[in-house]
Amino acid sequence: MTTHSSGDRPRVLVLGAGYAGLTAALRLAPHARVGLIDPGHRFTERVRLHELAAGVRPDVSHPLSGFLHPEGIEHIAARATAIDPAGRVVATDDGRRLPYDRLVYALGSRTAPAGERAHTAHTAETAADLSKRLQDGPGSVAVVGGGLTGIEFAAELAEARPEWRVSLHSEGGVGSGFSPRARDHVLGVLRARGVRIEEGRRIEDPGSADADEVVWAASMVPNAELAAAAGLPLDSSGRVRVDGTLRSTVYPEVYVAGDAAAASSARAGALRMACATAMPMGSHTAASIISELRGRGPRTFDYGYLIQCVSLGRRDGLVQFVRPDDSPRDRFLTGRLAARVKEQVVRSTVGVLRTAARRPWAVPLVPGMS
């Protein structure tokens, strides 16, 4: 690796302190001078935001300082405003211009806008505001989106806030990625919680959901605007194009990890946006950069799915076993056992990050990591 920054170790900048970015930064810390650029001071467990919305948990975030104690990581509490990939410089909103030898773009995703009246809808990102609003009940709340996020929001709200009438709306089938029997279980639990399910109707705008409050969980969009402005090509979904090693197809010094990457693998095909894929991608980008530091080339990203987990309130859940390409198998777990497995999986994400902070060499030993 040819370096252009001062000091005896190469400079790696990581944009974003989410699942992918934090994993990459922690694993890189012993090998490079890492600058983690993120305006926030807390790591949010996005996979728990439905619990925050329902009031099950008062907080689902952790101080970044609790992870960033390894020598070699500097938290740059600013927002990246521009990338100059030719000059290998990132500009921030506090006026700095930060050089890098390698860049990890891990700015994640956000809930897609909900039509012209987007300001009237709650999203996962506004879970804390939704929790406060639900304290003023009773009333009706419509969850729009029949994927994993929508299912978890509907189930959690119905169980924790029985004074609210909850409905779940999906353009296609709710839980369509599950096996038929597993999907039947999900629908049965939702109906038992009093959730009204409406399938086969596309809701374009929150105002047409006919509810006092609307939770928009219909789709996600990548935070790729900064990459596009820098000249990094995007695919048709708006994610940054990468090669098999997760490097930009035009700027090999730039790696992209997490939801913003249009990543694929031989076993899984095109990867969906998820914590389950973000952390392995973050680990892989770090491993590839470390390999480059040692005079070898970057590694090809190899990933295959194992399970899909969804919580159905605090006492039930579904663990769907899947093939490496994410298609459902016939096997699945339900009930309290599935709820416990889902909780353990969620806890393990923070556990892996804490392991990466203390023993980064152990991260590849975690199943699914490289």
Rank of each mutant, 00 (worst) to 15 (best):
T44M: 05
R102P: 01
P39M: 10
A142C: 08
S248Q: 06
A274F: 07
A287W: 11
A106V: 00
H31R: 13
S370K: 10
L68R: 00
R97C: 09
L337I: 14
G207M: 08
L68D: 00
A160G: 02
L306N: 08
A218K: 04
F332A: 00
V250G: 11
P206Y: 09
S61P: 09
L190Q: 10
A217Q: 03
D330H: 15
L306Y: 10
H41L: 06
G40S: 11
D38A: 15
V322G: 04
A339L: 10
W216Y: 08
Y19K: 02
R102Y: 12
S248I: 02
H169V: 11
L36V: 10
F332I: 02
V352L: 10
A270Q: 13
V366C: 07
F67A: 03
R191S: 13
T349E: 07
R359F: 12
P364D: 01
W361I: 02
I73Y: 01
Y19H: 15
L49D: 01
L130E: 08
S248M: 05
R133K: 13
A217S: 14
S288I: 04
M281Q: 15
G150T: 01
G295P: 06
Y303D: 00
T355D: 04
A20V: 07
A217L: 00
F332D: 00
A155I: 05
R97Q: 14
P364W: 03
R165I: 01
R296D: 13
R201V: 14
R272Y: 09
G7H: 03
L49H: 08
P233Y: 09
S176E: 14
G145V: 01
V14F: 06
R336T: 13
A106K: 00
A278N: 05
P63E: 12
L232G: 09
G231D: 03
G269L: 04
D38W: 02
R33K: 13
H41R: 13
A266D: 14
A20D: 12
R9Y: 03
L168D: 09
A192T: 13
A266L: 13
H122D: 07
I197T: 10
Q135R: 15
V341C: 09
R133A: 15
D330V: 13
D136K: 15
D212Q: 14
W216Q: 07
R294G: 14
A230Y: 03
A263W: 09
A54R: 09
P162Q: 03
D325Y: 13
L337D: 11
R315N: 13
R359T: 13
T123F: 05
I307L: 12
S65V: 11
P138L: 07
D330R: 15
D8C: 03
T123R: 15
E71T: 13
R165Y: 00
A224T: 09
F153V: 04
V221A: 12
R359M: 07
V310M: 14
A17D: 04
G146H: 07
A24T: 09
